[in-house]
Computed example of a mutant assay.
Amino acid sequence: MTETVLVTGGTGFVAGWAIVRLLQQGYRVRTTLRELSKERSVRAAIATQVDADERLRFVVADLMQDDGWEAAMAGIDYVLHVASPLSGEQTSADRYALVPPARDGTLRVLKAAVAGGVRRVVMTSAAATTRQRLDRDIVSDETMWADPDDPQFDAYRVSKILAERAAWDFMKAHGGKTEFTTVLPGAVFGPILTPGNLGSVAIIDGLAKGRPALMPMLGFWVVDVRDLVDLHIAAMVSPEAAGERFLGVGEFLWMADIARILRERMSNDDAPKRELPTFIVRLMAPFLGPLRTLAPLVGRRFGVSNQKARHMLGFRPRPATDTIVDCATSLKMPYQPGSVVR
């Protein structure tokens, strides 16, 4: 019998590629939308990569509402919980303001999955949930938890830390036979399926258009969305992955490295060339709105290990240069299957 996977948040960047990859591997897929009016656009995006036919179904369920989740979980074998109730720039002065929606949405999915007898839930968290204090020269791994009171973390990352902690606490106490695993990605780039809701890809889009003209010295542990989805699926089916966390990160790139790739590999003369001195960024950050949340990270390269995902699940992230090129290409024109050779 063909197994069925529920992917939360079908309009999202990661969710779209998860749906594609699951269908390519022969699964039936059900995905949640806040409103069915989005079904046509999601189907069109998925159709550029794979023939979904009757194997793709849609249900209405909102992370912030109880309605719909019981029906969404009926007959489901696995859940990839990749959706988040939060998006865009978070500028709240209260670093804990976003915790309730992130935590409650996650627990709503987990409670429904356990009640529905789902075999395993794989939740997308964030690599930042393992990051240690910036004054410590230490490589983060899955045994570590970030301190939400650490001032390096903005409201969004605080919410990710505490939502994942709440998820583990709930599953240890109430999970029953439902297994649980988390995947912790870095900065997710790669080809887009639709032009809306760019998320982290907006960084590439901005650099390709020459913004910012003076780049802050910010760095990212890059992961390709396609490799991240493969990691989720491996975490879903591998017996040894139950009860484990997996960091999904590839290479580290500074913002200036990304701009250089755009200039050299994409012949993009608009990509910026100059960096803003770190001390100026730190001085100006309190007056620059969303940028102030990034001030602690300017000029810092914090270590992260992906060895657990490599050894246990065969994670093999592609070169970050290929990810950046594929991402920038898709921003210029619709991504087509087979257009990129891994």
Rank of each mutant, 00 (worst) to 15 (best):
G12S: 07
G314L: 07
S125P: 10
I138P: 02
A187D: 11
V121R: 05
Y156S: 05
V79P: 08
V121C: 05
L247W: 00
A208L: 04
A173R: 04
P334D: 07
F180A: 03
G75R: 11
V50D: 07
R260K: 14
R108K: 13
V60A: 14
P334V: 04
Y96K: 04
P191T: 07
V59R: 06
K308E: 10
S84W: 02
V281R: 00
V59I: 12
W69D: 03
Q25V: 01
R133T: 11
V60T: 15
A155K: 09
P101I: 07
E164A: 00
T11H: 00
M73I: 08
A309S: 15
G117P: 10
R136S: 11
L207R: 00
L283I: 13
D135F: 08
I233K: 00
L23Y: 07
P239G: 05
P148R: 01
P148I: 01
A309Y: 09
A61V: 08
L56E: 01
V20M: 05
R310Q: 11
A187K: 09
A241I: 10
V201L: 03
L98N: 05
P100H: 01
D326N: 14
G338V: 08
Q25R: 15
I192K: 14
T31G: 05
T143N: 13
V109M: 02
R21T: 14
V118M: 09
M266C: 12
M171Y: 06
V201I: 12
M1V: 14
P296M: 00
T293K: 11
S339M: 15
M215C: 06
P290N: 04
R28P: 00
D104C: 00
F279D: 06
A93G: 11
I261M: 06
T32R: 06
Q90D: 02
F153Q: 04
L198D: 01
R57M: 10
S92C: 07
I161P: 00
W69I: 06
S238R: 15
V281L: 09
P212F: 08
G88I: 02
G12W: 03
E54T: 10
D137T: 13
P148E: 00
V122A: 07
P277T: 02
A83P: 07
L193Y: 02
T194G: 10
G75P: 09
M333D: 11
Q132S: 11
M217C: 12
I76L: 08
F252V: 04
V14W: 05
M217H: 15
A45E: 13
G248A: 15
S125G: 10
S159L: 03
D77Y: 07
M217D: 15
R245M: 11
L291G: 05
A234P: 08
T2C: 09
K172Y: 01
R292E: 12
L184N: 14
L162D: 03
V99C: 01
L231N: 11
